[in-house]
Computed example of a mutant assay.
Amino acid sequence: MEITLTDIERESYKNSPVHRLDGRVKILAIIAIIVFAVSLPRIEESNFVRLFSIEIYLILLILLARLNPLYLFIRFIAVLPFGLAMVLIQPFVRQPFIDTFTIYPIYLPLGITMTYEGIYFGLTLLAKYIVCITAIILLSSTMKMNDMVASARRLGVPKEITLLLSMMVRYLFVFWIVLKRIRVAQKTRLFDIWNKSTPRKWILEQIGYTIGSLLIRSYEQGERTYISMLCRGYGNDGINIYIHKNKLRITDIAFSLLTATILITTILLPL
């Protein structure tokens, strides 16, 4: 089964108590959770309990939102390697904020050593990273892209930035379709990136041609779009984006208070 970007985006169109929350409330709550996770001490035994408590809270919100576990797993796996690489090197690095190190009893070649403190610090980074990824996936899975841009604008994000984000959202799926057309054309010519009998150099060249073709088409589409916007009066009276005003409901306020209470309780929890 092939999973497309449209299938993943369709998750944000579901109807659940989490989906119906005001976008501003969800953005501020996720930012607060990320700041909480990042601001925890570098090495402390209570970090894992606090991060585990927040992760459980996020998982409960995911269950309440009735999100597809397969799509969540794909998103998680796609982002995890970026932080996992930093985590894996920590046992071999002696951080300057640690005074003493205890050598792990494993002998590695070239005189490389592991330390218990490095392993502990790496696990702490991994726990923080997992909480941040889960929070971001929850936000992106329960908010439409346009609603996210509109909510950011209502929070006071400069209109120039929201304009760029709205244009990116509008044409993201267009270029995804263009990329799919290129891939279909390659398959009709029997191009297979995983074909072991094909020279790796030639495959890399074809990938480079694909990226270059996509960039050229992106530039041409951007130029056509900009000219069309100028013909319709863009730039004469400033940058204006219509933002629908919404009032906070009781459920939005209750969710904000619940998130704040959980964060404060987790911080003040004696461990």
Rank of each mutant, 00 (worst) to 15 (best):
M1P: 12
I3R: 05
L5E: 15
D7R: 11
I8V: 10
E11V: 05
K14C: 05
K14S: 11
N15L: 12
S16Q: 06
P17G: 09
V18H: 04
H19G: 03
G23L: 06
I27K: 03
L28G: 01
A29P: 02
A29K: 00
I31E: 06
S39Q: 09
P41Y: 04
I43W: 02
S46K: 12
S46A: 14
F52A: 15
S53K: 13
I54D: 01
I54H: 00
L58F: 08
I59E: 08
R66E: 11
N68I: 05
P69Y: 08
F76Y: 13
G83Y: 05
G83P: 00
L84D: 07
M86H: 10
M86P: 04
P91R: 01
P91A: 02
V93F: 07
R94S: 08
R94F: 03
I98R: 02
I98G: 07
D99T: 11
D99E: 15
T100K: 14
F101V: 00
Y104M: 14
P105A: 10
L108S: 04
G111P: 03
G111F: 08
G111Y: 08
I112N: 01
T113Y: 03
G118I: 02
G118D: 02
I119W: 02
G122W: 02
L125E: 02
L126P: 01
I130T: 10
I133W: 03
L138G: 01
L138R: 00
S140G: 02
S141Q: 03
M145D: 14
N146Q: 15
M148V: 00
S151P: 06
R153V: 01
L155I: 06
K159T: 15
L164M: 15
S166Y: 08
Y171M: 08
W176A: 15
V178C: 06
L179I: 09
L179R: 07
K180C: 08
R181K: 13
V184P: 03
V184M: 12
A185Q: 12
K187A: 15
T188D: 07
L190S: 15
W194A: 12
N195A: 11
K196N: 10
S197W: 10
P199Y: 10
I203Q: 01
E205W: 11
E205S: 11
E205K: 13
Y209L: 14
R217Q: 14
S218P: 01
Q221I: 15
G222A: 10
R224F: 03
I227F: 12
M229H: 03
M229T: 06
M229S: 04
N236D: 13
N240A: 11
N240R: 14
I241K: 08
Y242N: 14
I243L: 12
H244F: 13
K245G: 10
N246H: 15
K247H: 14
D252W: 00
S256R: 03
L257T: 01
T259D: 01
A260Y: 10
A260H: 07
T261R: 06
T266N: 10
I267P: 01
L268Y: 14
L268Q: 11
L269A: 14
L271V: 13
